[in-house]
Amino acid sequence: MLDQTVTADGRTIGGVVMEMRNITLRFGGVIAIKDISFDVREGEIRAIIGPNGAGKSSMLNVMSGFYHPQEGEVWFRGEKRRPMRPYQIARQGIARTFQNIALFDGMSVLDNIMTGRLNHMKSNFLEQAIWWGKAEREEVANRAKAEEVIDFLEIQSIRKTPVGRLPYGLKKRVELARALVAEPKILLLDEPMAGMNVEEKEDMCRFILDVNDEFGTTIVLIEHDMGVVMDLSDRVVVMDYGKKIGDGVPDEVRANQEVIDAYLGVSHD
């Protein structure tokens, strides 16, 4: 693709992998997103920030194909994305986590994570019913991959626990594992640190940085904790009332007058 840059900490950031062009999303008369464009480059950590109701989660839902924007185009890996269902988009290599955890409560941690491997499992119905040859080999191979992620996120001890019994912080981690095990091209994280205490936040930051560093996964994240965002991300998009008011490296955004106004308020005199 285009150019390559090397960041201060030695990671390589490639060309544009995903591009949102003039996205507008309306719910009836409410305009959730208004004519927003930005791009995501390969290997970077891209943050989307903004006050409550700015349209950040809607933007993530557009990226993961859950909402279909009325106007605008999504370009993914050099191709314009045609309208498709969310599960088809997942197969293209986009995984996500949710703001309010969306795990499968009745299943164990391991089964949740194995569900994330669905798109890598090819054996058909009959092969699985007989459970001979391909189905079993595939299960074992994917289990090995799942165990890698379990090791990586340090959740070995709970792999057979039903998800419903886990505390909040661990659930968030399991959800990250489920997204990560799909080996996505782009990982979308919707407030991965919401509701966590400082230690849990630090753990989660470490995992996000490690994922990006070790697997080279491109990450788009929404976060409210400014310290986290400024530390983690390579570039930041700032939204307010469905519009983009800032875009650039953290220092640029921090100095942007519109952003300061949006966060601190403006005196009307």
Binding site: S64, G65, F66, R85, P86, Y87, A90, R91, A95, R96, F98, A102, L103, F104, T115, G116, L118, N119, R178, A182
Partner: peptide
């Protein structure tokens, strides 16, 4: 919903 977003 989550199942569909995962690829089911």
């Amino acid at each position: 919903i989550a199942a569909e977003i995962i690829g089911v």
